[in-house]
Write a protein that binds this DNA or RNA. Structure first.
Lengths: 190, 190
DNA sequence: CTCTTGTACCTAGCGCTGCTAGCAAGGAGA
DNA sequence: TCTCCTTGCTAGCAGCGCTAGGTACAAGAG
């Protein structure tokens, strides 16, 4: 039993190695640089090994995204619980989300722009993502009034997402980022 | 002179043929299906002909996007001028934008998700895009109060963009789309 | 009308991609 | 010790964006 256990452990470690290498490579050189050959070289195994762990490149990106959700949830939670006033808490969560997206654009893309094979709106939603969205929910809840909480949260989140993605693609004036954030917050803190 | 004129005219026609073929192919089968080989076959010329018109595939996508901006501007203008009440006008513009993005997702992607080599925030912003954004500006203006008009418009637009892109990637519940739209509008009509 | 020049276009191919078939080596169990 | 099976490799496929080099045809000169 111990031999098989060791093997499974080593296999799990290698899988983690793949995901980490993919994330680091994407964060340092962008997803275009993450090719299966490059990734194989990085982990010091041959290309086909990747396919014994993941169905394909998309699945690797999905695994990276999943780690990102966990990271994001932690940061959002820290931001939310750092403030007691509901308005300030929402502002903190929004700011933390924006910082996350700005600081780790490649990871953010894997989570919210690519990797369509991860469904978000059904029972198979990854727990880590559910948790991250939960932080948004709790931050919005005290300010929801008569509006449906989940719908309102989705809308607020979409606003943040739009601000980040449009700015990063050069569609918005970068030097007005903070003002836009403040404006969005003011409109959802009423 | 007339011979050269005819040639230039034919060349312009062929360039339009390329852009149209790219747009139609993208809209019917997605941008992944738009390869240079496939596109060449579609216009019944060889591959290198594409490169005598455009620097590369990205430039073709940018040309498609440019056409999209013109289309969008027309539709936004129609929506805005169809209502006299400022709130209803903004709602109409928002709805028209959402419909555009939903009905022509591939075109929308070329305009706002891919094609980074088109700058939006400087002097070289394409006139068609300037016009489309101008419709947003005019729709928001009557409701701007003390907020900076351009910044507020960018924020509102980002909200719409976020709603569309997140929903299309399966990140939002599709059956709550209208509610989210209404919520966003209510927050920007105050 | 013939010859030369230039241009418009095509065939072929480069280096890369994601992915897979088929083989060789090594450890596990009889 | 022999056999089997797992593991990871080499090699290769089809397709990608893009380009070099050559051909055939039209335009202008003598």
């Amino acid at each position: 039993m111990s031999i098989q256990a060791r093997r499974e452990r080593e296999r799990a470690e290698r899988e983690q190695l793949i995901v980490t290498a993919a994330r680091e490579l994407a964060e340092s050189e962008g997803w275009d640089a993450v090719t299966t050959r490059r990734l194989a070289e990085e982990i010091e195994y041959s290309q086909p090994v990747l396919y014994s762990h993941f169905k394909g490149k998309d699945a690797i990106m999905a695994a990276v995204a999943l780690e990102g959700f966990a990271d994001l949830a932690v940061e959002l939670r820290a931001a939310r619980t750092s403030e007691t006033d509901p308005r300030r808490a929402l502002a903190a969560v929004g700011a933390a989300y924006a910082v996350f997206g700005e600081r780790r654009p490649a990871l953010y893309d894997a989570m919210f722009t690519h990797a369509v094979d991860l469904r978000f709106d059904n029972a198979e939603t990854p727990p880590a993502l559910r948790e991250a969205f939960g932080e948004f929910l709790e931050a919005v809840r005290p300010l929801a009034r008569d509006d449906d909480l989940e719908t309102l949260t989705e809308t607020f989140w979409s606003g943040l997402h739009g601000l980040l993605t449009l700015m990063r693609n050069g569609r918005l004036r970068r030097d007005h980022h903070e003002q836009r954030l403040a404006l969005l917050l003011s409109r959802f803190s009423g």
